[in-house]
Design a protein around this nucleic acid. Structure first.
Lengths: 253, 253
DNA sequence: GGAATAGTGTCTCTAAGACATTATTTG
DNA sequence: CAAATAATGTCTTAGAGACACTATTCC
């Protein structure tokens, strides 16, 4: 009867497992790349998948995502309302939750996906339970033949696509593109981030005017670098602004 | 040992319950309002809460949200990639997932919150397991003394705040404001929606130019109405466009 | 007629797009 | 020297904000 099946009756709830999956994005060699791990077990044994794992009993969702990220990459992430970018910091935010009844062939698993934006890392050092890990350009992964013709495990292709779309739209109206950059960076390096994430070419002069003219977006550190070649460029760090108004405009088509 | 505690070992997952909670918003009497139900059971007995309930074993997340919405309001919602606005339709989308370990005092409950935008309904007809229901202006709910000085149950105050913020930002760059309107509406009625959701006053002439000048936003039906008084106004229905480019600009401060 | 709302038009100014030009490095 | 990138500047134009004005109803 209905009354006995009360909303939070501990004996009445059906068996669910809750996991976190991570869409970890970075920009390397002018391309937006996602972190993948190879599955060592069934189902989808040998397939590439997003990193992730169980949420532990006493653990929050963002906490579980941070822990998995640290286990698989060594990155220390901070959620949106946290301190400013630090040395090895990355941005972490909740993406969406995926709970189709048959998304895992073995049992009912609800996965809370998270999005991580990280600066370029030396090389994937797979720790934890992944037998191997790699960075893969998302341009390949979102096409018809993800990795050597094999799709990602579970519904991870869809999760990845959602994460990439979130990143592409968020750098329009927020300062999150700086999360892809090292602690100090040049305007040209920031422009290359936008070009890689959006897959477009931007006018360097209009871009420079826009980002340096938006209050709080960039803070000059005083230093300069010639690591991009040519005339020395000013170094900046991320400013306090988190929202860009007016936004960066993504070119059509 | 690690290998035995494999990622999807059915015997290893900790006990989680998964629920959906609904932030149902509408505009009535020039104010943005949220649907609340009064809890008939412990914990938070007698408190106002968001409608919601358990996800059933064979049911998807959006499916569970739709079912709960129908049970509590009689509304038939369609998710984002669905058919166009219908007679008693409402917009439904996933909002975010809340899983703090102590958010429910009795057990570990992960709630996948959904956002519903609905046209003004005659009156709340509480069906299902809610002992009573009401529309409450969100201006009151987001302040320091939500309902007669009593906060909402669980973390529903935070969920509501996130839902309202999502609605406020989404009507900037999408055509979703039409989800608050009846099937046919005037430009003035649409403007009142924006004014209620944002809590601002907009210039009727600039607003008219903007919405009628955005291709695909509004489709004239040919009819007119004088239900707002004054000169007869053209009636429109929602057009095919879902994204507004350039967006509606929310006034500062 | 007066009051209300609908709809059109005009002016100004911000800011984006499309360029040119100069500055400063490395090879 | 040439080549590369950085940084600043100019012109044009789309579009938002701030208004005035006319149109059509109800009372």
């Amino acid at each position: 009867m209905i009354v006995a099946m009360s909303r939070y009756d501990p004996s009445a709830f059906p068996p669910f497992a809750v996991t976190v999956d991570l869409v970890v994005l970075t920009v390397r060699e002018h391309a937006l790349c996602a972190l993948l791990v190879r599955r060592g077990e069934s189902p989808f044994q040998g397939y590439w998948a997003l990193p992730g794992g169980f949420v532990r009993p006493g653990e929050g969702l963002a906490e579980a995502a941070s822990r998995e990220l640290a286990e698989e990459t060594g990155l220390r992430a901070h959620s949106a309302p946290g301190p400013g970018p630090s040395a090895v910091g990355a941005h972490l935010e909740q993406l969406a939750t995926y709970g189709h009844p048959q998304r895992d062939p073995r049992m009912r698993v609800v996965s809370v996906a998270h999005l991580v934006l990280a600066p370029d890392l030396p090389t994937p050092q797979p720790g934890g339970d992944a037998s191997s890990a790699r960075w893969a350009p998302v341009g390949d992964l979102l096409g018809p033949t993800p990795v050597e013709g094999v799709p990602l495990a579970f519904d991870h292709g869809k999760i990845l696509a959602d994460g990439v779309e979130r990143a592409r739209s968020k750098i329009e109206y927020s300062s999150l593109a700086t999360a892809f950059c090292p602690p100090e960076f040049t305007v040209g390096e920031l422009r290359q981030v936008y070009e890689a994430v959006w897959g477009v070419v931007l006018d360097p002069r209009n871009f420079h005017r826009k980002v340096t003219g938006t209050p709080g977006f960039l803070l000059p550190t005083g230093g300069t670098t010639t690591r991009q070649g040519g005339r020395p460029a000013q170094l900046f760090k991320a400013g306090g602004a988190t929202v860009l108004n007016p936004p960066m405009l993504r070119p059509e088509a």
